[in-house]
């Protein structure tokens, strides 16, 4: 059974409201998970549990947390992600808009990159949303 993009957003919104204790109105596609919604690292595990249950999918840890890339000396120089690193991130996370990050690709900026819209696009690829 295929789901629509609206249904994906509604379920993602419900999961985030429950996991983060935020209001529905705060969960907009543009909202960043960490900066705007206050998600901490442990919340991502909770969110993954909820999304897996809600959509009946499996979310491998690496697909949403590319720590291995961000801690790999091959892809990081002086605290900045290299061009090769960005290419690798884009390959791993095609659902994320990296344009802002590319302007100042410091590793510490990565944690506040992911938006609600990115989460939805990720789920859409998993469930084949129309």
């Amino acid at each position: 059974m295929s789901v629509t993009k609206d249904e994906v957003f509604q379920k993602v919104q419900a999961a985030l409201v429950e996991a983060l204790g935020v209001d529905e109105e705060e969960v907009t596609p543009q909202a960043t998970m960490v900066g705007d919604l206050g998600a901490e690292s442990i919340d991502f595990l909770d969110i993954v549990f909820k999304l897996e249950k809600s959509f009946g999918i499996e979310i491998p840890r690496k697909e949403l947390s590319p720590e291995d890339i961000l801690t790999n000396a091959e892809y990081v120089t002086d605290g900045k992600v290299t061009d090769a690193g960005i290419a690798e991130l884009k390959r791993r996370m095609p659902f994320v808009d990296f344009s802002k990050f590319e302007a100042d690709p410091q590793v510490r900026n990565f944690s506040n990159l992911l938006t609600v819209g990115d989460m939805c696009r990720y789920i859409e690829t998993k469930v084949g949303a129309a």
Partner: peptide
């Protein structure tokens, strides 16, 4: 409810 590689509910 669920046991995964990095946590459980």
């Amino acid at each position: 409810l669920d046991i995964k590689t990095d946590g459980a509910m």
